[in-house]
Design a binder for these strands. Structure first.
Lengths: 338, 338
DNA sequence: CTGAAAGCGCTTACAG
DNA sequence: CTGAAAGCGCTTACAG
């Protein structure tokens, strides 16, 4: 391995001077700079990240901590991985991914190693022990999601309220008045305190008070089959039920489309189905293609990483950001029958 | 931050001795060991990963390098992230994820920083410039996938031949003789040299020679709509075409199910459709659920990381492994009509 | 503008 | 079994 010492000897200067040109941290005469740069090119020098980290007390590594779940991560979650990695990369940072338990034990252990400068936290619960761990250890962090109280905490999240209202607007514009909100994942650990569910459900309650709609919230499990899903959401065949469903989970939405058809309902002739916070690829998987609110996964991953890096670099902080999902027209929504 | 020096002072020993008990690398009297352990607990000492890495010349960090593609990563690819991270974690290693260009430039740059001890390479092309980069820099690496020639190269991959034969067995047992192999992603950069496609196509050609089947290979693009897909695969309505399709891509398989139905073919009454190398969640998304060969994503991620770590730890090497996909019954395959 | 030197927090021969 | 010391490859006051 060629070190800074090698370059210094080759160029006839001190390693300090080499360091100054490598990092562009102090003025250096054009002549010496050129000599050093030539030497570096000739020897194929690359600055050692580990030594740099130890000396500068900054590793320029970020961690993305995600909980190990029984179910696979959602597509949107996966978008965080790649978008956060890309954002970090663009700033000269690395991203490690940390599978950690929800109680914060493993996170405390990992943070203690001082391998990373900051942590990005995914799948945040309303009261998240991992947040306390990070605060106690004085590790800079940013949330992709929100705890119950986020005063003073750096975070980015989906704007669930705006998203829901946009979705409801679409359906009421079509003439729907009786809506169902479908939440997937009932019975799962952390389900009741999972931000997206809690916030969407609350906004739905609120909307029923403020707007001319009649609603029903339906909680379903991952294992409910399509027909059972459809019956829970729209009622038994032939009965009067909601004419449209807002579904907070891609897979559940797709299975509901299937279930509706199998229980004799045309989509969107008889019932409309709209996916809330879904990945864009999801749309084309159903027949007809699912109308959905597209989750801003890539944006959130990018914003989260960027916000964290700004803290670390002591740059202007990025204010907390709530990003709404964007409407993507499909073929599963239409005016209600009659 | 409490350092080894602090612990040594507190316990009245040298930092060398503290190091010996922390790493369990040399015998230490039970008495001193106990004193040191008490001090560590009292002071809340944690070994600094960066200093350790610099001194021991091993960072215990692995990189997972994946190409930045226009399309989102497949579900199976994503399983590599989490399974490799879990496997690394179980061995006390960290996993960084590196989005890198296919030409190997960025990889060379990153590897030069000496932040990682080894690299796991995903989405391997038959002739992959990134492999040369790793060889030239003498960085230990393992492939998830295969180059054209893998002699002496540590790798794990799907056994495409076995997978295809298993799938064909299933269809011929049902009575099918006329099969279509559908490859998604035509026209994409690297499509023609993408191992999974090349190997599956070759095995399909071979199977037509060796077995009593008649085949057709159909290459389709991501943007083909369902009806067009169905026509390309099964021919125009009413014509004699393949009675079953083997589809190498989840999304394409699902859209083909939709397309078949829309063009007046019952699935599986008129045509059978089978997904090759698909994620398990994919099955329930179509109606009826897709019959598929389940890709061993988690196994491959785990094996790849483990193989790499064994190289680094100079343990018994893990031999190259080809893992077949496993059959998962669904409702899209049945005997051909008549 | 440039250099000598201390120091980042560990590991690891080498002595004893 | 334990310790003193060199060294990993950098950064960064401090002098000049």
């Amino acid at each position: 391995m060629v070190t800074m010492k090698d370059v210094a000897d080759h160029a006839g200067v001190s390693i300090a001077t080499v360091s100054f040109v490598v990092n562009d941290t102090k003025p250096v005469t054009p002549a010496t700079r050129e000599r050093i740069e030539t030497s570096m090119a000739e020897l194929g020098y690359r600055r050692n990240a580990v030594a740099r980290a130890l000396a500068s007390r900054r590793t320029r590594i970020l961690a993305l901590a995600y909980p190990v779940l029984e179910r696979p991560l959602s597509t949107a979650s996966v978008e965080f991985f790649t978008s956060a990695a890309a954002a970090a990369s663009a700033r000269g940072y690395h991203l490690v991914i940390w599978p950690v338990s929800n109680d914060g034990r493993e996170l405390a252990e990992l943070v203690g190693q001082r391998l990373v400068d900051g942590v990005l936290l995914m799948e945040v619960q309303l009261d998240d022990p991992r947040v306390e761990v990070l605060e106690r250890s004085a590790t800079p962090f940013a949330l992709i999601g929100r705890t119950r109280d986020v005063t003073g905490i750096c975070h980015v999240d989906i704007d669930f309220e705006a998203t829901l209202h946009h979705a409801i607007d679409h359906l009421t514009d079509l003439g729907h008045r009786h809506l169902a909100l479908v939440l997937g994942g009932k019975g799962e650990r952390g389900y009741r305190t999972y931000g997206p569910f809690v916030r969407t459900a609350a906004a739905f309650e609120q909307a029923q008070i403020e707007r001319d709609i009649h609603g029903r919230t339906v909680e379903v499990t991952w294992s409910d089959d399509p027909e059972s899903l459809a019956r829970q959401v729209f009622g038994e065949e032939g009965t009067d039920g909601p004419t449209a469903a807002l579904v907070l989970n891609d897979h559940t939405a797709l299975r509901l489309v299937t279930g509706a058809r199998r229980t004799g309902r045309r989509v969107p002739g008889d019932v409309s189905i709209l996916g809330l916070s879904a990945a864009p690829e999801t749309g084309s998987l159903s027949d007809p293609p699912l109308t959905l609110m597209r989750a801003p996964g890539p944006e959130l991953g990018h914003l989260g990483a960027e916000a964290l890096i700004r803290m670390l670099e002591a740059e202007d902080p990025l204010p907390p950001r709530l990003v709404p999902c964007t409407f993507e027209a499909g073929g599963t929504t239409a005016p209600p029958p009659r």
